[in-house]
Nucleic acid binder design. Structure first.
Lengths: 338, 338
DNA sequence: TTGAAAGCGCTAACAG
DNA sequence: CTGTTAGCGCTTTCAA
């Protein structure tokens, strides 16, 4: 920071005491006389002293900073995750440093590298849609840097994870659609490798199987989550010989693209085709028709992930990785009411 | 960080050279023999060395980190601002540390304090809606900590600012509404003290004046931006003796609340009442009717703010504060086409 | 081209 | 209850 920063040394000199006494007084050490402590505090105030966290961090080998890696910031879901993490971290005396991978694998690796060299005490990571190899996570394990994965996770690492019950969520959607009389339910998934996609497809298939509806591979398509891709795949589905009577989109943003496309083709939702998303964005109920979706407790996910990591940091010995799975809630609106 | 971190000392010992040589080699100092440098690099690689940024920061008194304070993260506008800042910062070798004030003045002050003690090299700040006194900014000036204000700014400080031309944007909206034949245009503003509100109201009034429409104080209301407040005020406007035939909302989220409320009352948009927002959220064109609005270059704002701050950091002497004002674009959609 | 040594601001034995 | 001292990992004179 700028020139002339006030240090504990300045306070010590002014008060003609030692720096260690100042240091202790500032941290409310019980071994310091009340009077001395008050004098130190007063002088610190007077000089507008701000502790140098950098020096503290170097000394105690702990930055009290958490690193966050998310695929993107401009997404209500991840922004809420981050809010949950941040509020929790602050309450427990930690800062956070946020990086976004922009859904790019190389960027994700680079983000983690940056965060490590910044010496964050631990990491909270949500993987990019491109991520299909995991040496960078293995590397964290080897370096004994604590981290937890949330939402966009992978399995097989001895770390905590926080997710929603994607399978059950997708199951509930599909069941609901079947109950509305839909016979040919299409699923627009994200990239095939993504954990949440696999899980949601599993729930979708489970519901179909239970109802004796056979699974048609043509009805399952994989989007790279761009608007172009979403619209193209919707078009592709509409071109099927046996057209779908419902579309289940992997998330609300995809559902919105689908909705725009369907409207542009003059199709009526839900009459001609039902539509359901996943996530429950704040605008989803303002759409026309209002979008049925699955509500995910994003803030809560962040909160849990942060608390878990912080517990681990506090007491590494007795820590055991946990796989936290949160419930989702099916939100039925007009886009799926036949 | 964890135990057994590799340091330059480890490299020096392995190679039987001094730490200063290692330090220099690592930073590609020209005074080091190529051969030595290569050996150092190889060994660093082999030992999986990661420089300790904390130690570097303490030594050179520079953290290469920028602090960001925004009112909220879960907003597409601010998330885009941040993306712009982040991309720019990374490209120029800086990290960012993000705080959200949650639109709370005390939190804003606390965020800035935290960021300062973390020794960020500079700050990018967008004020909370509650902020009406500015000692915390004055304090930054006194400490000679560089900062730039963006979007939610205040005037009167010798610092750079980045905004859009709010007055002109609001002027264009109001003009457009008048052209559509609207005679009684209501304005739902944010808190009265907010800079952007004042500016936008000015544009609104200017357009009315130019067209000889007299300004009716009953048509200008101040929301605290909560959904409850937005709906209550809409209701209040509808209860006016002389009802409005258009509503201009301070931003898209407010406009969406208004839209929901109007629909719930069975009113037709734009037939019964026209509606325009400000910001252009990605979903705004998916609404029914699609929402007319003003497009703000949020990412670009972040980019400019970051570049400006970074320039200042690079060369503090020759730096002059700038007030950057970006253009907006009126986006006419169905919600305002009579 | 390299090394020795000082020191950034702070904390934490250890000693008194 | 307080002071002395060493040192976290790194950069940077200064000297060789």
């Amino acid at each position: 920071m700028k020139k002339g920063q006030v240090t504990i040394r300045d306070i010590a000199i002014k008060l003609k005491i030692s720096v260690s006494t100042v240091s202790r007084a500032l941290r409310n050490s019980p071994e310091i006389k009340l009077e001395t402590r008050q004098k130190v505090m007063a002088m610190a105030e007077e000089l507008n002293y701000t502790p140098n966290v950098v020096a503290q961090s170097l000394r105690v080998n702990r930055t009290k900073t958490l690193g966050i890696v998310v695929p993107q910031l401009a997404s209500h879901f991840f922004a809420s995750n981050i809010s949950g993490i941040q509020d929790t971290a602050y309450r427990r005396g930690y800062n956070v440093m946020i990086c976004q991978s922009n859904e790019n694998f190389e960027q994700e690796k680079s983000d983690i590298r940056t965060l490590i060299s910044t010496r964050v005490d631990g990491l909270l990571i949500s993987l990019s849609r491109e991520t299909e190899s995991y040496e960078h996570l293995q590397n964290l394990i080897e370096r004994e840097i604590p981290f937890v994965l949330f939402d966009r996770i992978t399995e097989g690492f001895p770390v905590s994870t926080v997710t929603v019950d994607d399978t059950l969520g997708a199951y509930k959607v599909t069941k609901h659609l079947l109950e509305q009389g839909c016979k040919r339910i299409a699923f627009i998934s994200g990239p095939e490798g993504m954990y949440i996609c696999k899980k949601r497809i599993a729930g979708y298939e489970q519901a179909l199987n239970e109802s004796g509806v056979n699974i048609d591979g043509n009805l399952i398509v994989y989007s790279d989550l761009t608007e172009e891709s979403n619209k193209r795949l919707t078009n592709q589905l509409l071109g099927l010989e046996e057209k779908p009577d419902a579309i289940f989109a992997i998330n609300d943003p995809v559902a919105i693209d689908v909705m725009k496309f369907l409207k542009s083709k003059g199709m009526k939702i839900p009459e001609d085709i039902a539509l359901v998303g996943f996530t429950n964005m704040p605008v989803s109920d303002a759409l026309e028709p209002s979008l049925s979706t699955v509500d995910q407790p994003a803030y809560e996910m962040g909160r849990l992930a942060a608390n878990n990591l912080l517990d681990q940091l506090l007491d590494p010995e007795s820590f055991e990785p946990q796989n936290l799975v949160l419930d989702t809630e099916l939100v039925i609106r007009n886009s799926s009411k036949k």
